[in-house]
Amino acid sequence: MVNSDEDDFDPERRHEREVAGQLATERSEFVSLMQHFYRGELGRVTAWRGRLDKTTNWAVGLMASLITWAFSAPDHPHYIILGSLVVVTVFLFVEARRYRIFDLWRSRVRLVEENIFANAADPEGVVHERWRTMLAEDLREPTIKVPFLEALVRRLRRVYFPMITIIVASWLFRVAVFGPTDIGVLEAAAIDPIPGSVVIGGVLLFYLVMAGLTAWPIDRLAKGEKRLPSERDDEWREK
């Protein structure tokens, strides 16, 4: 019986441990590997995008339910709407964290798209000359590229600040219009034992803080947006 190559396979040998390094010099094999890699990373992006959507759906559903219940009867307490404001804020922080992880996978997908697929469709050169090194470094040491503040601001701008605005406006309307007619707005906004003036001041202060964060100028470190190639390279190297 003739011994096959598998009979001499020794996983401890350096040649066997670094067998994947041969793909770096074989063009067809490397392109095939990138195809499978792209599909795998795209699956991760899709999964984490679904997690972002689920968080948003939970926040919207809860907000709509609590606001509807607060307006369904005059004796229902108005502060249940403020409860939805607290829960939506919690969802905001959860989604900001998920967005940072989502961007980790998206950055790899965009790197492949910018330097392989885009160049195949219109061969004018790669966006990043060191894209293979960049990808290898990120695979060896995955790093989250989006600061938490940027993720928080981006989710506020895209989704959560409009939701917070709806909640605050609904609460003010509920207190001012659907509250008891024999007392003033300040008395109607009270949450025993907290005076109405303190409640209204706290809600408005919270809203102004969220508005300030939404308008906060931030540098774009997340991938996937159109920026100058030099800016993308510098930001990636800093990470």
Rank of each mutant, 00 (worst) to 15 (best):
T89C: 07
F102E: 03
W131R: 01
A222Q: 14
G21L: 15
W171S: 00
E16P: 03
A222T: 09
V199D: 01
V146F: 00
E235C: 06
A73Q: 09
F178L: 14
D103G: 02
H128M: 11
E114G: 05
E187R: 08
V159F: 06
G83C: 05
T56A: 12
P11F: 00
R49G: 13
S72L: 00
R39P: 00
G50V: 04
F173I: 14
P229T: 01
D219N: 10
R174N: 02
T89Y: 11
S107D: 14
G125A: 04
R140N: 12
A96V: 01
I101N: 08
R158L: 13
R174M: 01
E235F: 07
V175H: 00
F91P: 00
A151D: 05
R44T: 14
K226Y: 12
T89E: 10
M1E: 13
G125M: 05
D192E: 12
G212C: 03
L33F: 15
R155N: 11
P142N: 03
M34L: 15
F178I: 06
F161P: 00
V88M: 02
I191K: 01
L23F: 09
V2M: 13
I194G: 02
D103K: 03
E124S: 10
G21V: 08
F91M: 09
S28T: 11
T214R: 10
P195H: 02
L228A: 13
P77A: 06
P123Q: 02
E26P: 00
W105E: 12
P162H: 05
E225Y: 15
P123E: 02
R27E: 14
V86Q: 12
R27W: 14
L92T: 04
T214P: 01
V94K: 10
E129L: 11
E238A: 14
F206P: 00
L92W: 09
I194F: 07
D234N: 08
V199A: 00
M163G: 01
A151K: 02
M134D: 12
L208C: 10
L204W: 04
D8T: 09
A24K: 14
A64W: 06
L205G: 07
A64T: 10
A169W: 02
W69R: 12
R158V: 07
I200N: 01
G40C: 09
L149T: 14
V175T: 04
L186S: 08
L205E: 06
M210T: 06
V2L: 13
H78P: 01
P180I: 10
R155K: 14
K239G: 09
K54H: 14
I191T: 04
I194K: 02
R154H: 12
R17D: 06
L42G: 08
T56F: 13
V88F: 02
L104P: 01
M210K: 10
G196R: 00
A176S: 13
V159R: 08
I116M: 06
T143M: 11
I81P: 00
R227F: 04
D10W: 05
G224D: 04
T68F: 12
E150V: 06
V159E: 07
A121F: 07
G61D: 04
Q35G: 13
V88A: 09
